[in-house]
Structure formats: C-alpha cells, structure tokens
Write a protein that binds this DNA or RNA. Structure first.
Lengths: 154, 154
DNA sequence: CATGAAAGAATGAGCAG
DNA sequence: CTGCTCATTCTTTCATG
C-alpha cells in the first residue's frame, strides 16, 4: 500500500493534479525528462494505485445544483452493521457525493448536492431521515466555498 | 452563469467526470457522434466554465497523508471582514483542501489532510488556533471514507 | 454537426548508460 | 535498473461544406 515516490514522481503528480490532460511531452519538457519516462512513471503510479483516476471537475451551479450541504448523521445504536447498512443506502442516493465515518457528535459526515433548498429538503426528509437506522441529523448548508483545491500537497 | 446543456453535453460530462482522459474519439463512438463534435462541445463547456478543469485523483495514503479531518471553525465576532481574513490565512496552509462557509454552529467548515495525528495537531494548534481572529474549533477526524465519488449527477 | 487532412501525442520495443 | 531513441498508431484539432 505504501509506495516509494521520488522527486520525479512527485513532480509528475503535481502536474497531473493541476491539469490531468497536460500532455506527457509537456510534463517531460518541464521536468527535464523524456516523455517515455513520464509515460512509464505514470503507468507505474496508476498500477500502484497512487493515481486513482482522472476526473473532470464540473461547476455544480452550471448543471443546476445550486445548493450543497454537509450533513452530520447519527445512526441508531451505532453498531458497525447498522452503520454499514445506512452507508449502503446513502451510497445509492443521487446527490450524495461523499460519506465519511468521523469522530465527534455524529457517526457520519455526508456531502450532498441538490438543485435548491426544496430539493435538499426532499433528499434529507424523504431519502435520509426515512431510512432504517436513522436517528438524527444536523445540516450545515454551504453558503459559499471559499477554497476547493483538489490537489493534495505532494 | 447558467448554461444550456442538452443531452449530448450531459453524456459527454458523464464520461469526462468518470475518466477525464477518455479519448474524444471513444466518447464520440459511445454517444454516436463525430469526435469533432465532441471536441466542439467540450471546448464550449470549458469556455463557459461548466468544466472547470481536469484533475488526477491521488490516493492520500500513497503520498503519506494518512490522516484527514473536517474542522468546524468559529471566528471571533464573525464579521465579514474577519472571516475573509481568516479564510485567506487558511488558504495558504498546506493540507487545507477545502474551506466552506456554512450555516450552523460554525462559521467555517474546513477539510484538512495531514501525515498523522501529530501532524494534524501541529496544523491545528500552531497554524489555525494561533491565527488572528480564531475563536474555537471542533475537529472531526475521518475514520474512514465510505464513499467519495467526484462525479456530480448530470 | 460531419468530413478529411495535418499536426501532435501516446505508446511500446529495443538499446544504452 | 532506469531512462532514452525511434517508429507506429491513435488522437486532437481545424478548415470547410
């Protein structure tokens, strides 16, 4: 699971995190290596699971998802199995982007997207609060995203 | 800001969200259009800001970031200017990936990555809690990410 | 929105340090 | 073992209908 990465690998990762469609030849030029080498390193990092994928980042508002929120969720009698079943249910819901198990007041912290507050209410009341195992929720509506850099510090 | 997207655009977005390096020719084949058309649509959506970018998704653990957390933050006398200054400070910190303004108990909800709990403590105590305007924080350590789909439902 | 052509990139084999 | 050169194939890109 742990992978050895040298400075070359890290430089490549920085480029691909910033723009996953940068031509390998361009990355090669910038780090002073041949594109074959870049190709090689990238292949190795994909195979090793360091690079999990390449994804277009879409503006939620542009596709009509103007509302988003973080929702803290508590599951009844937070047993492992109960939480698992609940997570499975959440995973199937449109608009649920991330589900995290966390320490603190809730068992789960969930990131959701919705068209508007009506849509959000529907998602929460009809699809989350009605689910088996649900105990209570705490919704933090996102008023603004001030920073969102998909790149990790490599 | 609002852009009209037809079914073709949406199909293209689904492909690029799932794998941003899918050749346009392959997308074209799957949606029954020429690659020139796909190229055209993609260019338009990039220019319109619908597609904000393409990013490699890197496994945090593979690069030594085994710990992550959501941190709720309260800013002293939560005036706009005070929050803005605080956000600016957070933006400059390594490991701070997202900063959201939210409703609820905190002014800000922040997603952070760290090497381990020691590194997380350092980030929070030395770089966040010491900053001007800081009032209090509430840290939710991520014990597990059960779901993390970068694709929005288009 | 498609066709077709020109430019450029990805990919893989084999070679060199 | 790691990176490079080279050649093939495939993709991107753009002018045109």
């Amino acid at each position: 699971m742990t992978v050895d990465l040298d400075d070359t690998d890290r430089a490549i990762l920085r480029h691909l995190q910033a723009d996953a469609r940068t031509p390998f030849s361009e990355i090669a030029r910038q780090i002073g290596m041949s594109s074959a080498t870049v190709h090689d390193r990238v292949t190795r990092m994909r195979d090793a699971g360091v690079i999990e994928g390449y994804h277009a980042k879409v503006d939620p508002r542009a596709i009509g998802l103007g509302t988003s929120a973080f929702v803290g969720l508590r599951v009844e009698q937070g047993s492992d199995a109960a939480v698992d079943r609940f997570v499975e249910h959440l995973r199937g819901l449109d608009g649920v982007q991330e589900v995290h198990l966390t320490t603190g007041d809730w068992d789960l912290l969930v990131r959701v997207f919705a068209e508007d507050t009506d849509d959000l209410r529907e998602l929460l009341f009809e699809n989350v609060a009605n689910a088996e195992g649900f105990a209570r929720s705490y919704t933090m509506v996102v008023l603004g995203t001030e920073h969102d850099d998909p790149a990790l510090p490599v």
